[in-house]
Write a protein that binds this DNA or RNA. Structure first.
Length: 219
DNA sequence: CTCCCGATAT
DNA sequence: ATATCAGGAG
């Protein structure tokens, strides 16, 4: 497990590697963001943006999503995958938004998780990106990076990873940290082919050093 | 834990 | 062919 100063070094370095880390899901308002993030489950941002480019022209309000059949909405998001659950969730979300929230998306993490298809991670993204509330959304990249570097234990749950990060990182840096770790995981510390050979964090990375040792025999 | 699921990279 | 992708619900 890395100490607080080692974690600080890692996060600062990630910031230098990806100074423009940001939310890569295209959206124009909080409503579009919560739709985009719920669509992004087990799917790449690139593909979500490809779909929402046309989706957000066709559907601009909660009423618009409720005006078509479930099959039509399924068809409009089919290429995303998991489209049956996602279409059903979006309809229910729109219905709840109109009936229980006056069409206004609540700016509270725990309130947002009451919507179907919106779990803790999605809610954290929405409050952080749309409303500027400090939060650390732990997605597949943040979890992988945290565990490889040794920010937390290998067996920690995503909630435990989030708690650890919140404890080790100042609150005003939560959102920036979250995006830095996503970019670091997505473009450098990748799931399949991590760039350990050119990684500036190799000296503190337990998993990276382990991987490098295994390659000594080859080359 | 399993299921949902198409697109893309490896 | 298989792994992975800004997960969530039952």
């Amino acid at each position: 497990m890395l100490n607080k100063q080692q974690i600080r070094f890692c996060l600062d370095t990630m910031g230098e590697m990806f100074p423009d880390a940001h939310c890569e899901l295209n959206h124009r308002n909080p409503f579009e963001l919560v739709i985009a993030v719920s669509l992004s489950a087990q799917c790449t941002d690139v593909l979500v943006n490809k779909v929402t480019a046309t989706l957000f022209e066709k559907y601009k309000t909660p009423e618009d999503y409720l005006a078509v059949s479930l099959e039509e909405l399924q068809n409009d998001i089919r290429s995303i995958g998991l489209y049956r659950n996602k279409a059903k969730n979006i309809r229910k979300l729109c219905q709840m938004l109109l009936e229980d929230y006056g069409g206004i998306l609540p700016q509270d993490r725990d309130e947002l998780t009451k919507f179907p298809g919106v779990g803790r991670k999605t809610a954290n993204v929405v409050v952080s990106v749309a409303f500027g509330i400090p939060a650390i959304a732990v997605d597949t990249h943040v979890e992988r990076v945290s565990k490889r570097l040794g920010f937390c234990k290998w067996k920690d749950s995503v909630l435990e990873v989030e708690k650890t990060l919140m404890k080790k990182v100042p609150k005003e840096e939560w959102s920036a940290t979250h995006h830095r770790m996503i970019f670091f995981g997505r473009y450098h510390c990748k799931a399949q082919n991590p760039q350990c050979e050119i990684c500036p964090l190799l000296e503190v990375c337990r998993e990276g050093k382990k991987r490098m040792k295994g390659k000594d025999k080859i080359g």
